[in-house]
Design a protein around this nucleic acid. Structure first.
Length: 498
RNA sequence: GCGCCCGUAGCUCAAUGGCAGAGCAGGGGACUCUUAAUCCCAAGGUUGGAGGUUCAAGUCCUCCCGGGCGUACCA
């Protein structure tokens, strides 16, 4: 983009901007309109706290320096009230001929809503009860050239909110609140794991073989190495290598990328927590997950009861546990087991508008039936236990049923929030599972997993019994912020270029 | 991908197929405790883009661009 062209075009289009550019030029003749610093200063929230008890109409001699963005101007001839905001906190300023003198008051009139301003003055509380700084001196810190959205209705246009998140953040406080809830959630997760001896690590996002999830990857290219690379769909296989390497408790909170459709629940890049813990199995993980989320919800939300999209959502453990087979049996009123024939199950699935593909086995059909008939009914937290082997190529075979794995998912508000299993540590079995996936891939399944020979080599070195868990952080934050869309908890959701 | 809906001034929104409007912001003026300040005046538009139907299109039709929701794939 050519800045001059863009500026000229704007000049023709927007009178507001043309006038501000003129002001800027005029200012440049007497001062630098983009200052280097304004320090020291008092944060506005600290002043609001310090003077919370100051009664209306009461003056102080206390001198303060504050800096922030002008979010409102109310001019009354020889006095002007001004709303100044820093980090979301507001304080009122009073500029007057009395306080500034004719000349400085005159040039105060050059300021616009949106400008960054630094002032010095004394604190008082106005007759109407507003904490106010009586300005004795001020300086423009940075000139704003574009107008902000209307003060009352704000910025509503969804597209503009996503594209110009910097404006959205200024005028829609709930965006800032959601962002803060997000960082508090992630900090609470970190603290919980750190306190229990987990080590945070970072593993490759650029991977020669994308593994750890059944999903289509993004493809990219490394010039110097002349090779294709993939953006990771999960950190799983690398974290498990670390377990092999003797790091017995590891976790990573970071982005993964999946080349799939965008929806209210899906962004192409999303944040996942994955942790791996040696010597425990999936039953241990189930209890640990309950404790972890209970702790996080209590820390971030205060109470264990949330409200999500108009419905009460009780997060207190213990959560309901049900096996996938029992859940599907209950939903269909039929006995669900691997004793039934493939055709039989296929016929049943058809009855629920689940058209099964030729390559699907019994496990896949049952899982699809689950997603169609059960998942939409699970609002309160539910641990769905024992997923079929066919759809779980990295999970260990169930100790009491070879068709199943020791795997559970946590479903909350009709969506998958976490996924965990007793890890498959048998290299011979893992090789067979990879080969099966490779076969599906040859048959055209683009989401089937790749054979990762180095990962197999790691398993052959020897991996201890391990439990591993992945948690969708964005989705957890959605619950905690009552957000209908994942875009509400991601600062810059993916959009097509303007 | 597919289906439905939306796109009008900087922002928020109006306008039976019949002269494109309002509030806020911005401009000029009055005003020294206001806070959605108030009052007076003036200005602001290629109705997302390109075609078409019509005496006449913001409005109807086709295509394109962007967005939202649903659906499919998935966490």
């Amino acid at each position: 983009m050519e800045p001059t062209d863009e500026t000229c075009r704007q000049e023709e289009l927007a009178e507001v901007m043309r006038r501000r550019l003129e002001k800027l030029e005029q200012l440049r003749r007497s001062e630098e309109p983009f200052k280097f610093r304004f320090s020291p200063r008092d944060p506005i929230n600290s002043l609001q706290e310090k003077y919370a008890e100051l009664p209306a109409g009461e003056e102080t001699e206390d001198v303060t320096r504050v800096a922030g963005r002008i979010m409102g101007l109310r001019r009354h001839g020889k006095a002007t009230f001004c709303d100044l905001v820093d980090f979301g906190d507001k304080i009122q300023l009073l500029a007057s001929v009395d306080g500034l003198g004719e000349e400085r008051y005159q040039s105060f009139g050059m300021l616009d809503v949106g400008d960054w301003l630094g002032v010095e003055g004394t604190i008082f509380r106005s007759k109407r009860g507003e904490l106010t700084v009586r300005i004795s001196s001020y300086e423009l810190l940075s000139k704003s050239l574009r107008p902000l959205p209307e003060k009352w209705h704000g910025l509503r246009d969804v597209e503009t909110r996503y594209r110009q998140r910097y404006v959205d953040l200024l005028v829609n406080p709930e965006v800032r609140d959601a962002l803060i809830t997000r960082t508090r959630t992630i900090k609470a997760l970190r603290r919980f794991l750190d306190e229990r001896g987990f080590i945070e690590v970072e593993t490759p996002m650029l991977q020669p073989i994308p593994g750890g999830a059944t999903a289509r990857p993004f493809v990219t290219y490394h010039n110097a190495l002349d090779m294709q690379l993939y953006l990771r769909v999960a950190p799983e296989l690398y974290l498990k290598r670390l377990i092999v390497g003797g790091l017995e408790k590891v976790y990573e909170i970071n982005r993964s990328f999946r080349n799939e459709g965008i929806s209210i629940k899906h962004n192409p890049e999303f944040t996942m927590l994955e942790f791996y813990w040696a010597f425990v199995d999936y039953m241990d993980l189930a209890g640990f997950l309950e404790e972890m989320l209970a702790t996080v919800v209590r820390e971030v939300n205060g109470a264990m009861r949330l409200e999500y999209q108009g419905r009460p959502l009780e997060m207190s453990p213990p959560w309901r546990r049900v096996t996938m087979l029992d859940a599907v049996a209950a939903a269909t009123g039929q006995e669900i087991s691997f004793e039934r024939s493939l055709d039989d199950l296929r016929e049943l699935a058809r009855g629920y508008e689940v058209p099964s593909e030729a390559a699907w086995g019994k496990g896949k059909i049952i899982t699809e039936l689950f997603e169609k008939t059960v998942e939409p009914t699970l609002f309160e937290p539910t641990l769905v236990m024992d997923y079929p082997k066919e759809v779980s190529p990295l999970a260990r075979i169930h100790r009491s049923n070879p068709e199943l794995t020791e795997r559970f998912e946590l479903i909350v508000a009709n969506r998958e929030l976490a996924n965990a299993f007793s890890e498959l540590i048998d290299p011979i079995d893992q090789r067979e599972r990879f080969n099966k996936q490779a076969e599906l891939r040859r048959q055209g399944d683009e989401e089937a997993q790749f054979v990762d020979r180095d990962f197999l080599r790691a398993l052959e070195i020897g991996m201890p019994p391990t439990g591993g868990l992945g948690l969708g952080v964005d989705r957890l934050v959605m619950l905690l912020t009552d957000a209908p869309s994942i875009r509400d908890v991601i600062l810059f959701p993916h959009l097509r270029p303007e």
